[in-house]
Design a protein around this nucleic acid. Sequence first.
DNA 1: CTTTGAATATTAGCCGGCTAATGGTAGCTT
DNA 2: AAGCTACCATTAGCCGGCTAATATTCAAAG
Lengths: 136, 136
Amino acid sequence: MQFEDTAAYLLAKATVLHKNAIQKYANSVGLHSGQVFVMMELWKVDGQRQIDLAARVNLSPPTVNKILGGLLENDFVTRARYEDDARSTRIFLTPKGVQVREALEQAWIELEEQTLGSLTDTEALMLKQLLEKLCL
Amino acid sequence: MQFEDTAAYLLAKATVLHKNAIQKYANSVGLHSGQVFVMMELWKVDGQRQIDLAARVNLSPPTVNKILGGLLENDFVTRARYEDDARSTRIFLTPKGVQVREALEQAWIELEEQTLGSLTDTEALMLKQLLEKLCL
DNA sequence: CTTTGAATATTAGCCGGCTAATGGTAGCTT
DNA sequence: AAGCTACCATTAGCCGGCTAATATTCAAAG
């Protein structure tokens, strides 16, 4: 059997390279690679609980907790008690957290170009549709 | 801008899910997720230097060093001095390391099915071709 | 009202990735 | 022969992922 011929292998290989690219562009705006996806969720819906954030980004609660630690230290988000349930906390964007979105958007455009550099527009569209199917 | 519409975002999202799947199937044969790709390279070419292994799997030398530490502890590989250069070492498969390939191949078939589960054969083929292009 | 069970956050500890810094070796230049 | 430079492995230390285990709180059932 040739592992290299499987989609599972190719996907993992593309992943390694892509992760490095994300890290590079995330760092350029003062974020770490894992933090950007949490921020994206907060930009969609601010004030979420950690458990809901974890579900949205498909990560475990401890992982999100660790990532939020870094975001808190760097003043991108704040924690607040959930009004009706002492078990939960809500995570809110700070002004700095709101503002960094614009910088990341610019960086993300470059990342997208680098990622799709060798593909035609048609291929890029197909890739996106196929990846969406994979995520179901 | 909608991050969710970019290939860079979708690829990262698929990555998270795929990594979990790899971990699951790797564990089922006694390997950790990072170890499988190093093993695959050794199955292709046994006795490589660490620096060459690192280049082949697109990882940094320290990462490969750490991964090899685990493989050494669990007796999947051995280290040997490189004959002509005291800086380098060669990594060789043990019998156990050779043998585990068959188990991983079986697991990999299941992984492939799970990965491509929602895709048609045509879509799977397209996906593989697109991922290969991404890796260039 | 008490007890039991589920939910939320957190901690500990592991592996997997990176960069930067060390130390030793090889090889080339002088 | 000496010294500079490049190369290879390794260490330290960080972030990002996971599971398992804790502590607290809520809710529901008896």
